[in-house]
């Protein structure tokens, strides 16, 4: 259980990136954070990852406050951020250096198998395509068996076909490890394809605006009527979030809108 309690972040220059965020995410739930640019999605993710410190409020994972990078929390960045001097296997195993050599090799091999890159283990990152690199970075986060996996627009630089492929890889890994997942995206289709719940954020200052539950069976077909209806609901919520309004309602009050 990951809970975010009245979390705020104001940057040194006075920018209020986040204001009073309250969110509880069940174990093994997939939550999509969606919203226009500048609504604090990435800031929120960096706070949960422990890379930045909040100005107010706190983040609690299974009763333990997160104030710096936590072993139970993994992060996949927007760019693959592979270390160019390590080969693919070395990159995947980067975060589990403390494990015995044998176990490390087994886990790396297994993770690479899962993302369909087993035959590329000895390659350099530069020899891979963008989609393959991002798969390596997802495998790198998964081998550490995180309880919470954060993804910051991980597929935004990829073409639609590659993205769909990566969605299935991600879900396959999720089925196996069952971490709590928070994925930041600006792609409504991606939220519908992956998430149990889509949370729409609004900017200036960043707040949670609306919640759309997505109780669809997996695997999901984007062309199915249920998916299309969900997409429309989220788009409408997004539209509302971009309209100026006096004060934001708390997502618990606003939430629950289904379709």
């Amino acid at each position: 259980m990951l809970s975010i309690e009245s979390l705020s972040k104001t940057y040194a220059d006075g920018t209020r990136a986040l204001d009073g965020i309250d969110l509880a995410v069940r174990s093994a739930e997939i939550v999509a954070l969606i919203g226009g640019s500048g609504c604090g999605k990435t800031t929120l993710l960096r706070l949960v990852a422990g890379l930045d410190r909040p100005s107010a409020g706190r983040i609690v994972l299974d009763g333990e406050a997160i104030t710096r990078p936590h072993p139970g929390v993994g992060l996949v960045f927007q760019e693959p951020r592979l270390l160019p001097w390590l080969d693919v296997a070395g990159n995947v195993g980067f975060g589990i250096d403390g494990l015995p050599r044998r176990e490390r090799a087994e886990r790396v091999a297994h993770a690479l198998e899962r993302v369909g890159l087993a035959e590329h283990a000895g390659r350099w990152p530069r020899e891979l395509s963008g989609g393959q690199q991002q798969r390596v970075s997802i495998a790198r986060a998964f081998v550490a068996s995180p309880r919470v996996l954060l993804l910051d627009e991980p597929f935004s630089a990829l073409d639609a076909f590659t993205r769909k492929d990566l969605h299935s890889h991600l879900l396959a890994l999720w089925e196996e490890v069952r971490p709590t997942v928070i994925i930041v995206t600006h792609d409504v289709g991606e939220a519908v394809a992956l998430a149990d719940r889509a949370i729409v954020m609004r900017p200036r200052p960043g707040r949670l605006d609306d919640t759309v539950a997505l109780p669809l069976r997996r695997p999901r077909e984007p062309a199915a009527p249920a998916s299309e209806a969900a997409t429309r609901t989220i788009l409408a919520a997004l539209d509302r979030s971009l309209r100026p309004r006096e004060a934001s309602r708390a997502p618990e009050l606003a939430g629950g809108s289904s379709f």
Partner: peptide, 17 residues
């Protein structure tokens, strides 16, 4: 370096063409 990469399969040694 102790983080030396782990060779997994022998079929991987393909040089850059």
């Amino acid at each position: 370096m102790s983080s030396s990469p782990v060779a997994l399969t022998p079929a991987d040694e393909q040089p850059v063409p």
